[in-house]
Design a protein around this nucleic acid. Structure first.
Lengths: 117, 117
DNA sequence: GTGCGATACATTGGAGTCTTATGTAATACG
DNA sequence: CGTATTACATAAGACTCCAATGTATCGCAC
């Protein structure tokens, strides 16, 4: 997926949108590069987003109405800030619930006790 | 992935191999249809494997040396039992550790408290 | 004795998601 | 000034899974 130092990158498939939406729910507005750095920080370096995964996903979430953008000029450079739309805000709650349901089901199948930290 | 009543089937991508290997670690030998039923049972009906996902995955795991098969004749029908190879047994432990590491990282990013059951 | 649901295997085409590679360009810093 | 970092982006391809389809047997009710 988005490059990881863990052994099974496939596991992460499908969670990138959830990660992005959650970060934007916590931080009001962020730009692409900032998201990659925040993920690296929060995961203790275990998760490193590639741009090839990030930007197409941001564009898709925007096209689907979950995100809005505003361009900010910094000297000659243009930075694109993303923030949640009202629809986006609702979907964050839903997606985290879905993720928790998924984990709960996987714990049952894999016989994992639900108190790992 | 393998059809689910949850809202985000994409989340499950990448975990099918882990599920299969774990079931075979717990049950010594199983055949395809039996695996679909066991997953349905363990997940409380939330996860339903499709054959289009299951059989290619079983064949792939066999080709990679994680599984071996034995054919059992039942009247005119042939049932294919799968069981873990020694390599397969080692990989189960590894994959579950990877899965737990993934969950741990996701919990950090999504600010989820690790005591949902 | 037959029709139907369940059992049991399998393949194919396609959608979706991510990776690798590549491209462009500005800024910071030594 | 050259190199790492910041910052955007796209394109080709791999990989995983789903939906659809195919074949065939078995158990049971009617």
């Amino acid at each position: 997926m988005y490059r990881t130092t863990m052994h099974s990158p496939e596991l992460l498939k499908g969670s990138l949108q959830t990660i992005i939406l959650k970060l934007l729910a916590d931080n009001d507005r962020m730009y692409g590069y900032e998201i990659t750095q925040k993920v690296k920080e929060l995961s203790g370096g275990k998760l490193v987003l590639t741009e090839g995964a990030l930007y197409p996903t941001l564009h898709k979430l925007e096209a689907e109405g979950f995100l809005k953008t505003e361009k900010v000029h910094l000297g000659k450079r243009v930075r694109k800030y993303y923030h949640l739309t009202p629809v986006g805000k609702n979907s964050v709650v839903q997606r985290i619930e879905d993720f928790e349901a998924f984990i709960s089901t996987m714990f049952k199948i894999l016989s994992i006790n639900p108190q790992l930290g």
